[in-house]
């Protein structure tokens, strides 16, 4: 017979192998749908770059001394990072609930923090791979500039984390496929499009400019644009503050949802 007090010392403080297993497992699931996960966003980015940047953009004047294609690329990149992050975590959580294999992690010695960290690790990997693919495509058009690698990495990772966390919340909440897509259709896509992907704030009518500044997507796109071509229309530091605040608020929310078992435990 094993005594409980003896058993208590067996486990490590952080279950690194368990955390790595979450990553391995989800990577395996992702590799079952590579077209959906990577090829689709790359083709979509290629079309955006070609049509909006190359064909239409060739007839648009320089913006802040940059060709339209250079201006629009960070927005296209951010659009795809946001989508990759959100879709990754929301589908990971939702399908594990739908097929009930989330119970495998619920009965194992994984802490909530490890489960969340595991999900976010895959989110970041998927976002970074998506971003690298788009940069390679953009390099074919000669527009891949990164002025500050650290700033670039900050925006890719922090925005991935924010939307990865948002995806977890939706994945826990959704009870059908329809609900899983609601946020993307009514919130993420519209806000990202009006957040300055294709235009500067100054191109908007005066009465709409305050809407752009109140839109968090503007700060994500503006931050990435500054990291890539040095062009900015707002404070990058305000953008850093917005992403950090969102990441903290959503981390606490997600941790709380896990700890009360929302959408996970009966």
């Amino acid at each position: 017979m094993k005594d409980g007090s003896a058993v208590a010392d067996i486990g490590p403080v952080i279950n690194w192998i368990g955390l790595w297993t979450i990553v391995r497992r989800e990577w395996s699931r992702l590799m079952r749908v590579p077209v959906q996960a990577f090829i689709a966003p790359w083709i979509s980015a290629l079309l955006f770059i070609f049509i909006f940047g190359f064909v239409v953009g060739g007839r648009i004047a320089l913006i802040g001394g940059h060709h339209y294609l250079e201006f629009v690329l960070p927005g296209i990149l951010m659009l795809n990072i946001v989508n990759a992050a959100f879709l990754q975590s929301s589908s990971q959580i939702y399908f594990s609930r739908f097929l009930r294999y989330v119970e495998e992690s619920l009965v194992s010695p994984l802490s909530y923090a490890e489960m969340i960290a595991g999900v976010l690790s895959v989110v970041i990997v998927r976002s970074v791979i998506t971003a690298i693919g788009i940069l390679i495509i953009a390099s074919l058009f000669g527009v891949t500039h990164i002025q500050s690698v650290w700033e670039f990495l900050y925006w890719v990772v922090s925005v991935s984390v924010v939307f990865g966390l948002l995806g977890i919340i939706i994945g826990l909440w959704a009870n059908n496929f329809e609900q899983l897509t609601i946020l993307n259709v009514f919130f993420i896509t519209p806000l990202s499009f009006v957040g300055g992907v294709f235009n500067t704030v100054s191109m908007l009518p005066k009465w709409m400019q305050w809407v752009a500044y109140a839109n968090p997507f503007f700060y994500f796109i503006n931050g990435l644009r500054h990291a890539m071509i040095g062009f900015t229309e707002g404070s990058e530091w305000l953008g850093v503050g917005v992403t950090l605040a969102l990441a903290v608020v959503m981390s606490v929310t997600v941790w709380r949802l896990f700890s009360i078992g929302y959408g996970l435990r009966e």
Binding site: G11, I17, G18, R25, R29, R32, E104, S108
Partner: peptide, 24 residues
């Protein structure tokens, strides 16, 4: 009731569970 990723391979299903439990 089966609480499994039905698209996963048999070996992986058992191996992942060992991983969750921190087995080297």
């Amino acid at each position: 009731e089966f609480n499994v990723d039905t698209f996963a391979r048999v070996y992986d299903i058992i191996d992942w569970m060992g991983g969750y439990f921190g087995m080297k």
